[in-house]
Design a protein around this nucleic acid. Structure first.
Lengths: 112, 112
DNA sequence: ACTGCCTGTTCTACAATGTAGAAACTTTCC
DNA sequence: GGAAAGTTTCTACATTGTAGAACAGGCAGT
């Protein structure tokens, strides 16, 4: 298959990047998990979150650095420009996808 | 991990369900592929589309029936109420996720 | 100091989803 | 009856999603 200019983030990847973005400055793993659970309302194992964080970092969409201070040693994440772009592109692609979809009709179908 | 009430559709799953929804009445595989490529701007193999269609059908989110008419024999898909619900829930979950995210800031980061 | 208990991270293994490519099937047209 | 176009099916593999347990350090309380 020919190269497409862009592949969207996965669902969990997107949730993780958004979570990091929302909590910049205190964005470590456990925090991201709480953030996602709070925002989406579904539970998630901590292992799932870290696996995704690691993969995003190795793709260059996030960076992490270890922060050692008063009784704690944590891994702080931040979003790279590439990460922000991937997230924005993912969002834009989805917006195009949904454009023209009749959401009322969708909800009616869902009620059936 | 405790059961969550709901798991979101995957990215391609969502694209496929939306495509079927948009083209109701003429929603067969090749059509869905064109629809997705047109809407999202990325290329996709037909195998990828059918694999996803099959999986969605076996989960009960789509139905399919073979339509034989004037010079064609095609497999027509439609969205079930469960499918519509899954799609609506996926959308709603994402809306919660993004609520409060500063998109301007995101775009600024992406430009950096 | 020992024990337990937080908070946070890493590792491992597997399930689900995403993806391409080629084979096979249908119908029309020469 | 064979080529061509449109559609579907099959197969195999890559990537992403996910849980659970192990590990590490700090801070009680004893």
């Amino acid at each position: 298959m020919a190269d497409s200019p862009f592949a969207p983030l996965g669902v969990l990847e997107e949730q993780v990047v958004v979570a990091i973005l929302r909590t910049r400055g205190e964005a470590y793993g456990m925090q991201a998990r709480r953030e996602i659970e709070g925002a989406t309302g579904r539970e998630l194992s901590i292992g799932a979150v870290y696996a995704t964080l690691d993969r995003l970092e190795s793709k260059g969409l996030l960076t992490s650095s270890r922060v050692v201070e008063e009784g704690s040693s944590r891994r702080l994440f931040d979003v790279t420009p590439e990460g922000a772009r991937a997230l924005a592109d993912t969002r834009a692609m989805r917006e195009r996808l949904w454009r023209g979809v009749n959401v009322r009709e969708l909800l009616a179908l869902a009620r059936a």
